[in-house]
Design a binder for these strands. Sequence first.
DNA 1: ATGGTTGTGTTACAA
Length: 258
Amino acid sequence: MKIATWNVNSIKVRLGAVTDWLREAEPDVLLMQETKTVDEAFPHLEFESLGYKCHVHGQKSYNGVAIVSREPVTDVRIGLPGDDGDDHARYMEAVVRGVRVICLYLPNGNPVPGPKFDYKLGWMDRLIARARELLDREEPFLMGGDYNVCPKEEDVYDPAAFANDALCQPESRARFRTLLNMGLTDALRVFVPAGAAYTYWDYTGGAWHKDHGLRIDHFLLSPQVADRLVACEVDRGPRGRERASDHTPVWCRLDLGG
DNA sequence: ATGGTTGTGTTACAA
């Protein structure tokens, strides 16, 4: 089973780019972030004509996540538990072929310090709590999405320039590391153990052409799913095209047998 | 050089 994640930065603007990529890469499941569209306006038909069914959790103007699958999906859950007052559309789950697939758009958190950074850290604490629950139940799961965290200095083109950025703060990195220390696997680092493997390039200053990127889109796998991991790659192709998202897709392949 | 660009939805905010 091939699963991809992509922060599309508006599904309305990116619909052509996304359907083009689905045709060429043929993932079984695509996790999208920053769809920026209410559920009523989501372009279901365009995906259905390619054989995919969409499960969406959107809001007006900001955020928004979606799980798009050509495999049957059960047990769709909306929202990250732990704060009933959180109205950002940033998190959803679905079970596909026995794997609980989580699609997340972690808060950016800038500027530091401030309420947005506090929200980010609280959100990460809730994500850790959810991961702990699923590990305790020994439920196979995969968490993919835009984490808005550069785990290490090697994940930033210019660490000094990002020293004060929420994506690189010790508190953000410590929480990401907690997820790893709980036994989750950073799927890309199984195949690209070190060095630059960027997934995002800012729109400003010719960042793409200078390869001034960040690695902030990740797949974290529970132990049972990590045992099934056979590939994980960043596909830089879509970032270089016309009217691109500032993120490019990352995909992984699980050998689930059958 | 305290800049730059894109998207949403109206001229400010988020990233």
